[in-house]
Design a binder for these strands. Structure first.
Length: 220
DNA sequence: CCCTGATTCGC
DNA sequence: GCGAATCAGG
């Protein structure tokens, strides 16, 4: 297996989306987790929260500015801090059910879940809840809220400020990116952050084969 | 044990 | 450049 453009593209996208190296390797097929990690590093992709931290002396940063982005979107925390949230959460706090305190920016969880072909978010059996905001059966619209449907956002159009959420499959004629202004600090717009950062399923429940927000690599 | 990502180093 | 082996934390 070699790293052609398409596979690299998939790697980049998934890596940035927070998928684990294992997931990426599995999705790509023909490569090991190590291969993915190695490649990611060679590509200069920035490392994500690693279990093994070189422990870098860091000047303290306190930009605790509660930015109001959207009532619907729960922001993901900085990678640095998501570590201990798991345990603290699994213990208490059952299910907020209906009367949820609107938001708890204090302990969000950053992770991913699969997104179905239509863009709907799959739920694992244990966590099925009615959507906080009654979502219409198909609220997904081509994610092209703004201006042009005609001018697709190509790979070349990508920059720090526009949403890199891929639409369609890499290599396909109409493959393009969302292109909407990003949710500051994230690679995606507010809407797609909502898709990209969600509660992680227990690893046990991970379905290896099916989903991939990116359409996954096509098998040849 | 399982998982994770990081690093090394022979190829 | 590649990735298995190894390391090391959770």
């Amino acid at each position: 297996m070699s790293w052609n453009d398409e596979r690299i593209e998939t790697l980049k996208t998934m890596w940035e989306a927070g998928q684990t190296a294992s997931q990426i390797a599995e999705a790509l097929g023909g490569v090991s987790r190590n291969a993915v990690i190695g490649k990611a590093h060679r590509l200069g992709l920035q490392s994500r929260p690693s279990p093994v931290r070189p422990n870098e002396p860091e000047a303290k940063v306190e930009v605790v500015e509660p930015v109001v982005v959207s009532p619907v979107v729960e922001l993901a925390p900085e990678p640095e801090e998501i570590d201990e949230l798991e345990e603290a959460e699994s213990e208490s706090s059952p299910a907020p059910a209906a009367a949820e305190p609107a938001a708890r920016p204090a302990e969000p969880q950053q992770i991913l879940r699969s997104v179905g072909p239509g863009g709907f978010v799959r739920q694992s059996p244990g966590e099925q809840q009615p959507p906080a905001t009654p979502a219409p059966p198909r609220r997904l619209v081509p994610a092209k809220p703004s201006a042009e449907m005609a001018g697709k956002t190509s790979l070349l159009d990508l920059n720090d400020r526009i949403c890199k959420w891929p639409l369609g499959h890499p290599g396909e004629p109409d493959f393009h990116f969302c292109g909407v202004k990003v949710n500051p600090g994230f690679p995606y717009c507010v809407e797609h952050c909502g898709h990209a950062y969600q509660a992680q399923m227990p690893r046990r429940d991970r379905r290896p084969p099916p989903p991939l927000p990116f359409g996954g690599p096509r098998v040849r």
